[in-house]
Design a protein around this nucleic acid. Structure first.
Length: 877
RNA sequence: GGGUGUGUAGCUCAGCGGUAUGAGCACUACGUUGACAUCGUAGGGGUCACAAGUUCGAUCCUUGUCACACCCACCA
């Protein structure tokens, strides 16, 4: 027996636990079945579920459950990411609360602490995923720092290194002074700010009172200047080229060089060149063979190459300006809008810094990664993201993969006594290689840098399946079927997976890549803790159930758009679950028992035929929509069918049958109801797994809905649908008439149908009880008599529906209603006439369109005549 | 500066070369009829941003304009 009210708290968690216990999420490994695999975008192991996750995992679970019901061999591979910087940051913050830094602990002890923390809090996100209903194969849970995955990382690193695709170089990199590590271009975010532009001058060497005026936003970097550049086309200043100028305060002479980087239109036309601290200047420096002077310590304080050693950049800037001012060298200071780079995790200003770092030759790896998208081996859905992907890939820069952090995969690099590099999968092999190289045993020193987190994520599609070992899973499920992820990590992750997979596996990591948008707040604002507009999915689940949240996500997911969270809408989908629940209760009360032998072909009652054909039609459309990743169309189609067709019409129409005397019709209707409800549960299950399972379990004792068979494409009898649609339209017409004439809902009326053709006459006779029940009529009859002034009328197809009111007609209201109807008809007639009187239209438009237009015109004309007659009759009354 | 999207009902958004049967919420009126008030019935509400072009026909295609959003690049 079902509870009177739908309360997801009563069963959601219980059902999930039983699924997991029965190991339903494991692939069936049936070799005769098509394989379908999805690897989860691994959440940060220490993270908690947010709305973006809810969307991402819901979409995947829909696809996974759908494919499982298609009978495929389905794997949803779960796992979590060690998230280098993010995790280290959290743990360091915890330590800071106790007044300790990671340096107090030392590397080994610190890493141990991180592992402990991972063990303690790492399970949260997985628990929350279960709560959402995600049907991953938890027995295969992976973590990017697992032994197996770490081995994969080392192996591919060694391969890349030996192929010359990983190299060490001293380069200008983005330096994060908080974490004291290099970061990649992607981890730098540019922020608009209003800063200052400082104008000052350098004296020309050997000249009295001659200066070169320069402008900069970072005056403190002047101690690292090794030249001033001027364009050779700069008529005003080109006479200075070749001379030298003096950096004040430190009294250092630097050359004035000719370089096109100095735009005569910008600033003063002369640019100070600081090759060690600016990407553009670095290039200029290379062109002119300028020395590099590093002026910063790793923590972004000024170093011994400056007079302000130990000061942070802001203080040094102030001090520099003051000193220049006192020397009479300042020209002016102006407000200046500019863009400043910040570390996306640390929030501090990123400084370009010369350091030794490791790089992946991304431009080379990008070639294959682009080719397989060009030739369609991997397809983006929606297709438009392909452009974003290509755009980035074409302009890709070497990828800086070394991080001076502690938490992460330590690079498999060892240095010999003379700094010779040995890159091997483990220390033993490195030692062997070194012995061979030196001709004797030597001590090696391991590289302390760790890898960018995204390096290991890039291997995810095959490392989780067992690579580098031989594995049945790898053979069966690679390449995976589809990757579902947000557009914000196309570069971070999708692109890297493509590059790494093509390099190592020579096959795409996934055949399709479904890209979804961001989840925003109700008004389209980005959700953030600082704005205070975040919505916690766990609270939503607590309040409305996981099914409601999932259905919301599916219903809102239209390709290429962000989703605005809307609690009222989620509530609406909870109501939908309630509606479904109550319809099942209706079935239970009326002894509608599911019978697997039920044969839809033997059904005879038109109402039953109608709902059977409708549900087949809905299933067909749903299958098509799911196959083309049209989530919102999928969800909305089922929603409309369940609420609109099944609940609003079918249940109401069968009440007269179920409460009637015809036992055979009753039996057939009960069986039909149960069959249709069963079908609804199946097709709704990927979207709302919990409520469908709970209702299913109410009458299936053996089989579980998870393994229920998804309906194959079926032929739909359109006539059976049209038959009852006629009844529905008639009832709607009568209800409309009643409401507009303000006829009390309780009043039992008689309706006449005038001008009925044979078909309509049959319908009225056959469905009189249904029509009367739903339109709240005493009786409905065919009528051939005259229309009298006390009748109100409405036109329905070829018929006129008449309701005699025996003196209670409100003629004013009736006149108003008829006039409104007439105005509508006239408007339509104008439009038809405009088209049909246009010879070009009749000539060139497809015949079917012209025919349809003619039919509409004829019908409207007929209706108009009837309405006009009606108006005539009540003139003066 | 380069790119990609988006402007449709009060709000949030679907949709489509052939009258916008648009959806949910909100709104108005009526309603407790033996699943459901987490409900039912009926209804109001739109020059589909603007302009030009293509077309028999444009909200939909093309171009331009305006507005907004996002991505990439750029610290003179």
């Amino acid at each position: 027996m079902l509870e009177k009210t739908y309360d997801p708290k009563n069963f959601e968690e219980k059902i999930y636990a039983s699924w997991e216990e029965k190991e339903y999420f494991k692939p069936n490994m049936n070799k005769n079945k098509e394989a379908f695999a999805v690897v989860i975008p691994p959440p940060n192991v220490t993270g908690v579920l947010h709305m973006g996750h809810s969307l991402n995992y819901t979409l995947q679970d829909i696809l996974v459950r759908y494919n499982r019901m298609l009978g495929k061999n389905v794997l949803w591979q779960p796992g979590t990411d060690h998230a280098g910087i993010a995790t280290q940051m959290v743990v360091e913050r915890n330590l800071a609360a106790e007044g300790i830094t990671r340096h107090d602990l030392g590397r080994e002890k610190f890493i141990e602490t991180v592992w402990q923390w991972k063990e303690k809090s790492g399970g949260t996100i997985c628990k929350q995923l279960r709560r959402l209903g995600a049907s991953c194969d938890w027995s295969r849970l992976r973590f990017t720092m697992d032994e197996g995955l770490s081995r994969a990382v080392r192996k591919i690193f060694v391969n890349l290194y030996k192929d010359g695709l990983i190299y060490k170089a001293k380069k200008l990199v983005n330096w994060d002074s908080k974490f004291m590590t290099a970061v990649s271009d992607l981890e730098v975010i540019q922020k608009e700010t209003v800063g200052k532009m400082y104008y000052y001058k350098y004296p020309i060497k050997g000249e009295e009172n001659e200066f070169v005026h320069i402008a900069t936003t970072r005056p403190e970097t002047m101690f690292g200047d090794t030249a001033v550049a001027i364009s050779k086309d700069n008529e005003k200043l080109k006479h200075l080229i070749g001379k030298e100028c003096i950096i004040p305060i430190i009294n250092k002479a630097i050359p004035i060089v000719a370089d096109e980087h100095a735009d005569p239109e910008k600033g003063t036309g002369a640019v100070k060149i600081t090759p060690a601290h600016d990407f553009n200047d670095f290039e200029v420096g290379k062109r002119h063979n300028l020395p590099l002077v590093n002026i910063l310590n790793p923590d972004a304080t000024l170093n011994e190459n400056t007079p302000f050693e130990g000061m942070d950049t802001q203080s040094a800037r102030k001090k520099t300006i003051e000193t220049l001012e006192s020397m009479g060298l300042m020209d002016k200071i102006e407000d200046h809008p500019m863009v400043i780079p910040y570390g996306d995790r640390s929030g501090v200003v990123i400084e370009p810094l010369m350091t030794d770092q490791w790089f992946v030759d991304a431009p080379k790896l990008a070639v294959e990664a682009m080719r397989v998208v060009e030739n369609g081996e991997m397809e983006f859905v929606p297709k438009t993201y392909e452009k974003t992907y290509f755009e980035w890939m074409r302009n890709i820069q070497p990828w800086c993969i070394s991080r001076q952090l502690w938490w992460g995969h330590q690079m498999p690099i060892w240095y010999g006594p003379d700094e010779t590099i040995f890159c091997e999968e483990n220390e033993e092999e490195a030692l062997v290689a070194a012995e061979k190289h030196y001709g004797k045993k030597v001590e090696l020193r391991r590289e302390t840098d760790v890898l960018d987190t995204w390096f290991s994520s890039g291997l995810w599609a095959f490392s989780t399946l067992g690579w580098p070992d031989k594995s049945e899973f790898l053979d069966t499920f690679y390449p995976t079927s589809v990757l579902v992820t947000g557009f914000d990590i196309i570069f971070f992750w999708v692109a890297r997976m493509m590059m790494m997979s093509m390099y190592m596996m020579k096959k795409v990591p996934f055949k399709k890549c479904y890209i979804h948008g961001l989840v925003r707040d109700e008004h389209g604002q980005k959700m953030s803790k600082s704005k205070g507009n975040t919505v916690d999915p766990m609270e939503i689940i607590e309040k409305y159930g996981a099914d409601a949240l999932r259905f919301f996500m599916a219903a809102m997911e239209t390709q290429g758009r962000d989703i605005n969270i809307s609690e009222s809408r989620i509530q609406g989908y909870r109501n939908f679950a309630t509606k479904l629940w109550n319809s099942a209760r209706f079935g239970e009360m009326n002894e509608c028992v599911f019978n697997s032998d039920f044969d839809t072909a033997k059904v005879s009652h038109p109402v039953n035929k109608w709902i059977i054909e409708k549900v087949k039609q809905t299933s067909n459309e749903l299958t098509e929509n799911l196959n083309s990743y049209r989530f919102s169309d999928s969800a909305n189609g089922v929603y409309q069918f369940v609420w609109g067709s099944f609940c609003d019409w079918y249940i109401e129409m069968i009440k007269p049958i179920l409460y009637g005397e015809d036992e055979q019709a009753k039996a057939e209707t009960r069986a039909t109801f149960a069959w249709v409800l069963n079908r609804i549960l199946i097709i709704l299950h990927p979207f709302m797994p919990f409520v469908t399972a709970e209702l299913w379990n109410n009458y299936h004792s053996e089989e579980d809905i998870i393994n229920a068979q998804w309906p194959a494409k079926e032929n739909v009898d359109e006539n059976a649908i049209a038959h009852i649609d006629w009844v529905i339209e008639l009832i709607s017409a009568i209800r409309s008439l009643r409401a507009e004439m303000n006829l009390p809902a309780g009043s039992k009326l008689t309706a006449y149908l005038q001008g009925a053709n044979e078909q309509s006459a049959n319908n009225v006779n056959q469905f009189a009880n249904i029509i009367c029940a739903l339109a709240r009529l005493e009786k409905i009859e065919l009528y051939n008599g005259d229309i009298t002034p006390d009748m109100v009328q409405t036109v329905f197809r070829e018929n006129t529906v008449l309701i005699p009111l025996k003196g209670i007609v409100d003629f004013a209201a009736e006149r108003e209603r008829l006039q409104k109807e007439l105005a509508g008809l006239n408007k339509n007639l104008e439009s038809y006439a405009r088209k049909l009187n246009n010879p070009a239209f009749v000539d060139k438009a497809p015949a079917a369109v012209v025919e349809e237009e003619r039919r509409r015109q004829a019908e409207a004309l007929e209706n108009k005549a009837k309405v006009e007659e009606a108006l005539q009759r009540i003139v003066g009354l």
